[in-house]
């Protein structure tokens, strides 16, 4: 049974251009409820942009995004984003607020909880990521790994149906990567629907249910991790894997 109220997310034929630069060229991605999809590929292949289009931080030029089978392109984008948690490469915690305030801000202002309710819920989330004792510290006084776990708690506090991870461990020192990946693994096993853009091939192979390999704005290959990692069919994926593994 899933611990989360997770949903199914689909992107259909997504196109996006910045000026003459055609960044996404007809992307399809289907992430069934409770599964983890990892998206791999070289830098500049459009992976991070795809995440931002799927929660409408960037509006697609063409295509559709469905959450639980229903198109969300006509919804209020702010409301859509409350249903999709996002974790960034650079953590992006709010440095002028304490750790607890980082987590409780959206609870108070968007879910309209009282200050006390929001704090106790925030502390609960921080406890889950092992950082309750840092509740009243400023983000700047935390290590990168701790900051990223706070960022995960902040996203989870909104009780999202889907979680996005945008290279969540790329900015971390090697010894701090493990704790964050472990937390992501727990979430995946707990039944959260996740889209994970990553350079961590171990995570992609061992934890995700499906892997999508993107290059130059198109999905080159996708399927179960075993298939992609042991039997890549395209030269581009073969080349990429030999570069990173």
């Amino acid at each position: 049974m899933s611990e989360f109220a997770s949903g199914t997310l689909s992107a259909k034929n997504i196109h996006l251009s910045f000026g003459s630069n055609h960044v996404l060229r007809g992307i399809d991605l289907h992430v069934p409820q409770g599964t983890t999809a990892s998206v791999i590929g070289p830098s500049g292949s459009g992976k991070s942009t795809l995440l931002r289009v799927m929660n409408r931080l960037i509006e697609p030029d063409q295509g559709d995004i469905l959450l639980d089978g229903r198109s969300v392109l006509k919804d209020n984008p702010d409301e859509l984003r409350r249903r999709i948690g996002m974790v960034f490469q650079q953590f992006n915690l709010f440095p002028h607020k304490t750790v607890e305030e980082n987590v409780s801000l959206a609870l108070r202002k968007l879910r309209k909880l009282s200050k006390e309710e929001a704090r106790s819920e925030a502390l609960e989330q921080l406890d889950l990521v092992g950082l309750k004792h840092k509740a009243d510290s400023r983000p700047a006084n935390l290590s990168g790994g701790q900051q990223q776990r706070v960022a995960i708690a902040r996203a989870l506090a909104m009780k999202p149906e889907v979680m996005f991870f945008d290279e969540a461990t790329s900015a971390l020192d090697p010894e701090l990567v493990k704790g964050v990946l472990a937390l992501m693994t727990d979430l995946a096993k707990g039944g959260m629907t996740m889209v994970v853009v990553t350079h961590e091939m171990g995570f992609s192979r061992n934890v995700s249910d499906a892997v999508t390999f993107m290059d130059a704005g198109v999905v080159v290959e996708s399927g179960p991790p075993e298939q992609l990692f042991t039997d890549p069919r395209t030269d581009r994926l073969k080349g990429f894997l030999s570069d990173v593994l």
Binding site: V129, G130, L131, S137, R138, A140, N141, L142, S143, G145, Q146, R149, E175, L176, K178, G179, V180, L181, A182, L183, M184, T185, D186, A188, K189, V207
Partner: peptide, 22 residues
């Protein structure tokens, strides 16, 4: 420079995710 505060090692990080050992 901000207000100085003691940093602690990120040892908790390794314990949190039970999934890592699975």
């Amino acid at each position: 420079t901000g207000r100085p505060e003691k940093k602690e090692p990120d040892d908790a990080a390794a314990v949190v995710g039970k999934g890592a050992q699975a």
